[in-house]
């Protein structure tokens, strides 16, 4: 009952081709849920559907028990859902600070937990580059910036789409530490990943998606010992 975000029976199409089939997902308040799956399994499409960028053709999305299915992306954001797309999409010709300011809005409770100062404490790298054009940051820095920009909107839930993708191992470690920090801050997280090991340290529970369907649900601990599932659905 304390589900922050709940998806029920969601079907998503791109044109005539169906990509997602009856997706059910629930994320409890304060939890970090990993959505694992191979490349092309439908993780990004799930996130786009929740964020309203690719609206579902069937099924429902609830945020704090309120039906937000079919809402425009900006209204979904104002209901407390922060979406960090996998391709990052910083505003390249705006400075780091301006990117953050564009993302600024109060949370659903009207409060501002994430000020620029707080952001710069948690992301010291960004602090030193606040005046630099976002398009000139490295991939890892852009990833940090996108997450920070979304936090500036004080979301209740944050959807992180493959934040470690294409980044050097040392940067991946930094991102993992950052996610752990966000969890401690009480941010509810839905994390899409191909890489199970990235999630082990941070996720409380796991859902595996394959060919547009949820095929497994459980705890990280269970998954660690289930070689059959890992072999069938994950790139190990």
């Amino acid at each position: 009952m304390s589900d922050e975000l709940r998806v029920q029976g969601m079907d998503v199409y791109y044109g005539a081709s169906q990509i997602l089939f009856g997706i059910d997902l629930a994320v409890e308040r304060g939890a970090t849920v990993a959505l694992l799956g191979r490349n092309g399994a439908g993780k990004s499409t799930t996130f786009k559907a929740i964020a309203g960028v690719a609206p579902p053709r069937a099924g429902r999305v609830f945020m704090r028990e309120q039906d937000i299915t079919g809402f425009a992306p900006y209204r979904i954001a104002r209901r407390g859902i922060g979406y960090v797309p996998e391709d990052r999409q910083v505003f390249p010709e705006h400075s780091v600070e301006d990117n953050l300011r564009i993302g600024a809005k109060p949370g659903t409770d009207g409060a501002v937990h994430w000020t620029l100062e707080r952001i710069f404490e948690v992301f010291p790298i960004l602090s030193s580059m606040r005046g630099r054009m976002a398009g000139r940051l490295s991939g890892g820095e852009q990833q940090m910036l996108t997450i920070a920009r979304t936090l500036m909107g004080n979301p209740d839930v944050i959807l992180l789409d493959e934040p470690s993708e294409g980044l050097a191992p040392i940067i991946v470690q930094q991102i993992a530490r950052l996610i752990a920090t966000l969890r401690k801050e009480g941010v509810t997280i839905l994390l899409a990943e191909q890489n199970m090991h990235f999630c082990i340290a941070v996720a409380t529970s796991v859902a595996i998606i394959d060919k547009g369907q949820i095929v497994y649900r459980g705890s990280i601990e269970e998954l660690k010992h289930n070689d059959d599932i890992k072999r069938r659905y994950l790139a190990v």
Binding site: G52, V53, P73, A77, P85, Q89
Partner: peptide, 9 residues
């Protein structure tokens, strides 16, 4: 689209 995703109408 990204501006919309950040909560701006």
């Amino acid at each position: 689209q990204m501006v919309g995703v950040l909560g701006i109408n």
